[in-house]
């Protein structure tokens, strides 16, 4: 359903992505792991044109675009098929929770206002914020803000939702509520690409786990293949670092 081919991206002399391929099937949850600076976030941002790749192509169903030279129209078309959940939530500060969710429906997708608000209420209910419709972001906790961010993505009913380290900016005690919401929507069959450091989430929810390092995909496979029987030394080293104790145990 989503196919990314040969993505290259440099910032100045710093080559961040060195030819990355990625295939995601409908309903899959793909988790991308890797040390910081490995290009995970840049890859997600290139898919949604928040960053222009130097080279690469993407196929969304029947939509074929060049990630480097796509026209404005193609960019908009890709954005209508995808949604993005940001590390820092990036809720619209001047809009209430429900307005945040409805904005993309009413303005971006021309859904009639009444219908858009109904969809938005449903989305907020789904993430457990049925009592916060009219709160501004400044009145919500980090966990609540990120749940609005997820509702904003879900309401658009996109082909794929891109999650960029959705729990990294949260206080530890708020991480759980956000992961729960993500598990819920994964169970409903939402196609997701998730960049995260939450190994538990990767193990429980992912269909496919991808390990990236230095701008390349080093290894990919099922959670079992990556966490229990990794083939690459770099993967093993990374897992030893992030899962001390637990990992040694399993080999």
């Amino acid at each position: 359903m989503l196919e990314i081919r040969d993505v290259h991206k440099s910032f100045g002399k710093n080559e961040i992505l060195k030819g990355v391929d990625l295939t995601v099937d409908k309903g899959d949850v793909v988790v991308i792991l890797g040390p910081s600076g490995s290009g995970k976030t840049t890859l997600l941002r290139c898919i949604n044109f928040l960053e222009r790749a130097d080279k690469g192509t993407a196929t969304f169903g029947d939509l074929n675009v060049d990630l480097h030279s796509a026209s404005k129209k193609e960019v908009l078309a890709v954005r209508k098929k995808s949604a993005f959940v940001f590390q820092n939530y990036n809720l619209f500060n001047n809009k209430t929770a429900i307005e945040n969710v409805a904005e993309g429906l009413i303005i971006g997708r021309k859904v009639p206002k009444e219908e858009a608000y109904k969809i938005s209420r449903d989305a907020l209910d789904k993430v457990g914020l049925s009592n916060k419709y009219d709160s501004y972001p400044s009145q919500l906790s980090g966990g609540q803000q990120q749940r609005v961010g997820i509702a904003r993505a879900v309401a658009l009913n996109p082909d794929v939702i891109l999650f960029d380290e959705p729990t990294s900016a949260l206080d530890p005690e708020l991480v759980g509520e956000v992961l729960e919401v993500m598990k819920d929507i994964a169970r409903e069959g939402t196609t997701m690409i998730v960049v995260t450091h939450e190994m538990g989430f990767a193990k429980d929810v992912a269909k496919k786990v991808i390990f990236m390092d230095g701008g390349n995909i080093i290894e990919e496979g099922t959670p079992h293949e990556i966490f229990v029987t990794p083939k690459e030394e770099r993967t093993r080293r990374f897992l030893r670092r992030v899962l001390p104790g637990e990992y040694d145990f399993e080999i």
Partner: peptide
Amino acid sequence: VSAGQLEAAYSVGLSTAQAYRRIVIPQ
């Protein structure tokens, strides 16, 4: 106004003009 506000507007399908009018300029 943080760059993230504009990016979020783009990500939900707003054009640059719409993003400025509805999100960036009011803030």
